[in-house]
Design a binder for these strands. Sequence first.
DNA 1: CCGACCCTCAACCGAAGGTTGAGACTTCTG
DNA 2: CAGAAGTCTCAACCTTCGGTTGAGGGTCGG
Lengths: 237, 237
Amino acid sequence: MTRPHLRAARTRSIGEVINLLKPEFPEITVSKIRFLESRGLIEPQRSASGYRIFTEDDVRRIEYILREQRDHYLPLKVIKSKLVAWEHGEESPVPPESGPPPEAYFASSGVSLTPRELMRSSGLSAEQLDALVDQGVLEPFELPDGSAVFRDDDLVIAKAAHRLLTRGLEVRHLRTIRLAADRQTDLLGQLAAPLLRHRNPDNRRKAAEILADCAEAATQLEEALVRGRLRRLLERQ
Amino acid sequence: MTRPHLRAARTRSIGEVINLLKPEFPEITVSKIRFLESRGLIEPQRSASGYRIFTEDDVRRIEYILREQRDHYLPLKVIKSKLVAWEHGEESPVPPESGPPPEAYFASSGVSLTPRELMRSSGLSAEQLDALVDQGVLEPFELPDGSAVFRDDDLVIAKAAHRLLTRGLEVRHLRTIRLAADRQTDLLGQLAAPLLRHRNPDNRRKAAEILADCAEAATQLEEALVRGRLRRLLERQ
DNA sequence: CCGACCCTCAACCGAAGGTTGAGACTTCTG
DNA sequence: CAGAAGTCTCAACCTTCGGTTGAGGGTCGG
């Protein structure tokens, strides 16, 4: 069941792998690779004399591991379990893995920021901020005294917006994203609507759970779709 | 600049905080809270006699910390830096923080799965899988020998789809999400188009970088928007 | 006044993630 | 064909992280 190939795939010794990885991961060492094997994250073939032999796939796997460590701070245990789950699909009737409890999804750190603070933290200019509020991308909270306050979600939004704006997108493009978010919210909202109609706390909690889980899944779905499409875009030369 | 309040906000002693947190975090201890303070993640007020006094905000902050640990395995250092960045906005002209290098975003673990394996790993039924392929949500790779193969992104998609389907969404809803992803891809694609036209490796790399960064930012933006809207949906009773 | 609660500070702890070095074999290189 | 460079295993060791434990002592509520 291996992929057909005409020329034997290129393989590498441990030292060659290190050199390959060095540019992206300067910290990598021979002993670390061996350590990863000892922990069961990789399983390179061996030559007759006992030398490790790495295929392209092995190298990709190592890169993946190192990136998860570097970019998401994941413990090796967790990375391993992802890799394993991957590999030969978990056994038997799979319960759809549901994410963290709703509290986590809807958690807020409780900070609140003035427009001024938001600008400083995000890097947005006053005009940009105004435009974003105007387009409904940012929605400040009105306090009784008339001043506006932003929450932690808004900071995430503002930072992301700043990033996109400096890359050349315009506020109207961000409005498009906002519309997509609205549609997504509607979709999910419908799902929870029946539960929210009769307002008892038990149903409310249940609704929160469903919404959190589905919102997360929907985000993952969309992100993976976009990533896949972009990858293809880059691949076809 | 504090929020106006009529009745003094409720405060709590360390033991009371523990009791409050126990349900969601059974592992919590007094010493752990003190430890978090020693690491500078929280800074409760003190009474005249030196007792720690926790406000609602402090409690929320602790909950946030504990959730980041539990759900995203983040090291305390990283959580702290997020909290600090938050708080009083990083100083001075903010360079838009850009994410990890493009390799990370477009990274693939290099696994490939047969339809059968994908079903087992995701929990999708054969009909569901067919329907998803039909709607363009999943796009298998055709091998020369005619068999179909899925990549790691597809596994993420399949799992998320399964999660949503068991929650009551239908394939046509997922198609909606796919369309949103298409639009998003177009939007980003335009941004990189000029660079991709003249095909030299330097431009290509640059395009990858921009795409990865913007895709990430766009996802964050949309997610934060959806989260905010859902939160409001739940809040208004 | 007593029992429950809280404080600090220093010492200690286990797990995670590697590193180091000794001793021995294998593989390139001139 | 020698020797330098690369690789192997295995056990000991190391640092950082994320706390725990305990001694010694003050504080609060009934």
